[in-house]
């Protein structure tokens, strides 16, 4: 059982990782900070009841708070990152490719985006993702599959990458 005296230490130690997860969901550092602090404050009240993995609980609060935010109100998502200077043709191609993928990720429905973030950034198992999102393992599988298919079928990616287009056939 987690000890409340350890909460401050948890915030200091684990916030950077959780903030990154929040950012990948919201794509805005200010929103991500708000989301993280909201989740941490909510988690404080449950701290004494948590088992040996409080991070999983906080992560669950993050993704569910994120989902409820977007049900109640919306804000525009405008990627503002500035790409680093381009060094040469190879690097340029890779930057273009990653930037297109980042933009395509931003166009995914929120649940599909959350599934990809939890699976491929947090390295959670399908069962863990299912628990975090309160959905079935089957839904995790189908949402992951749909998201990956959608990324490969994204018009921008197809236009930029004929290979991806060819993969469809």
């Amino acid at each position: 059982m987690a000890d409340r005296s350890e909460f401050a230490g948890f915030v200091a130690a684990r916030s950077p990782r959780l903030l990154r997860t929040a950012y990948l969901l919201t794509r805005d550092w200010a929103l991500a900070e708000d989301l993280l602090q909201t989740a941490l404050a909510k988690s404080w009240f449950a701290w004494g009841r948590l088992d040996d993995d409080p991070e999983a609980y906080v992560r669950k609060v993050i993704v569910n708070t994120y989902a409820s935010w977007w049900r109640r109100k919306w804000r525009g998502e405008t990627p503002t990152e500035v790409l680093p200077d381009r060094a040469g043709p190879d690097a340029l191609d890779r930057l273009d490719e990653r930037d297109e993928l980042w933009q395509a990720l931003g166009r995914l429905p929120r649940r599909q985006r959350a599934v990809l973030v939890l699976r491929f950034f947090e390295d959670l198992t399908e069962a863990q993702v299912a628990d975090a999102l309160d959905i079935s393992v089957g839904t995790v599988k189908s949402q992951t599959s749909k998201a990956l298919v959608r990324l490969r079928l994204d018009d921008t990616l197809i236009a930029a990458h004929p290979v991806l287009n060819g993969d469809r056939s």
Partner: peptide, 20 residues
């Protein structure tokens, strides 16, 4: 050519490598 699946982690890591 990397596929979206294999480069997802790279993109996630790249986008969160520096934070406020």
């Amino acid at each position: 050519m990397t596929t979206p699946r294999t480069s997802l982690r790279e993109v996630f890591d790249e986008r969160t490598v520096s934070m406020p």
